[in-house]
Design a protein around this nucleic acid. Structure first.
Lengths: 222, 222
DNA sequence: GAGGTTCTCAATCGAACGATTGAGAGCCTT
DNA sequence: AAGGCTCTCAATCGTTCGATTGAGAACCTC
């Protein structure tokens, strides 16, 4: 499936440059352009792009305000901020506005394309300096130290699972029933139930849902 | 100038592995090790390392609490969290505690060394998933960073839930049974079952586990 | 070869789950 | 006032789940 991309930048030169490069990418279709914030909102509402490359410094309506309104109207749109500066004054508001990416214009075109693809997949892309801004912002902020320490023992328990039990847990964490897991693993449902029982016991859970939540949070079954 | 590095990890195996690899790096000197949080604080006070690679899962004092105290005592120390999981429960507290890096243990050794150098120079190093956690946290959005982006259809369905159903989903996503949810919400188990049935129907799932997985991936029920 | 672990399968049984139907109460908007 | 949600509760019914016990086979290690 091709990615529907839109560019919002007041410099025609920048738009032209991206046009040329994007033309060589079969999986990305440039469906629209805009030279200011208001135009971006209008075009996006009509064209419904998947991803928007957004300049921050635009007339009429700046990129951050535009991003905020855009996300409010169409939360599924992925906004990647593409700008020339990475300072606290811009990074934080942009992310808070809902941007899923923050990149600098000195990025290599190939990297930019890669970033577009990843953001479209639901990941985030941050320039290291932008990440730094976020980290510094959060550093020293209030920390809820309520429920930690719980993870440590669970981590150990995870290591106690046999390979097969881990395999079952992985399947369980995709939402499969015992029967479906059995079919997938080519074993009986009975056997699956045995594995599930054992794994719940070792992990200290009382039902599969808790195990699935645990697994997803640990990134198992990706 | 050589970088004075310290390792805090309760697994001797991990420390040994790093030792071996670090020995080949002329600009990095391994000046100390610790197997638990308290030991880390003691050794760090005495050895004054530039950078600490910190496991989160340690006995006595966990990595997050250790990081917080460490940074308070010696703000110039750069802490890089090196752990096995990248979930909201760990990333955010770690950064708030003052960590300048958050990496997963499946990182390539060369990349780890590079990360140590960059953090030492004042930059930050985040695993993409960790960056995703921060962005999602700040944008207040409930967008995940999963790769299999099943897409906006589910996002729309989420909006179809009534406030009460969403509430039930949130509880469900913590691993509670219908009975427990009922107690927590001060309604009958029967009513909970009604809500669950409706929410499963609207979301298009066939059982609570699938709903819980979905919810956790969207960051609901933090 | 004895003992331990893992993987497999089965059967039973109570508990939890989910679908479905029906219904009363409160709160909107029209 | 009427129709439309939402929230609440209940009862029934079939399905799924999870615990438990028992057991055979393959594969380790000692």
């Amino acid at each position: 499936m091709t990615i529907r991309l839109m560019i919002a930048d007041d410099h025609a030169m920048v738009r032209r440059g991206l046009q040329v490069f994007l033309a060589t990418q079969p999986d990305i279709a440039l469906v629209g352009e805009a030279a200011n914030g208001q135009e971006t909102l209008d075009r996006a509402a009509e064209l419904r792009p998947d991803v928007i490359l957004m300049d921050l410094n635009m007339p009429v309506l700046n990129g951050i305000e535009t991003t905020a309104r855009l996300i409010q109207a169409q939360p599924e749109i992925k906004v990647i901020v593409l700008t020339s500066f990475a300072d606290q004054d811009h990074v934080l508001p942009a992310i808070q506005a809902g941007a899923k990416g923050y990149l600098l214009k000195d990025i290599e075109p190939d990297m930019l394309i890669e970033a577009v693809r990843r953001v479209h997949q639901g990941r985030v892309e941050l320039h290291p300096d932008a990440a730094g801004m976020l980290v510094n912002h959060l550093s020293g902020s209030e920390r809820p130290l309520t429920k930690e320490d719980k993870g440590s023992s669970e981590e150990d328990r995870l290591g106690q699972l046999t390979p097969r039990e881990l395999e079952v847990l992985r399947h369980l964490a995709t939402g499969m029933s015992n029967k479906e897991i059995g079919e997938s693993l080519v074993i009986t449902e009975k056997t699956v139930k045995t594995h599930v029982s054992h794994l719940l016991d070792k992990l200290g859970f009382s039902d599969r849902t808790q195990a699935a939540i645990f697994a997803v949070k640990r990134g198992i079954g990706l």
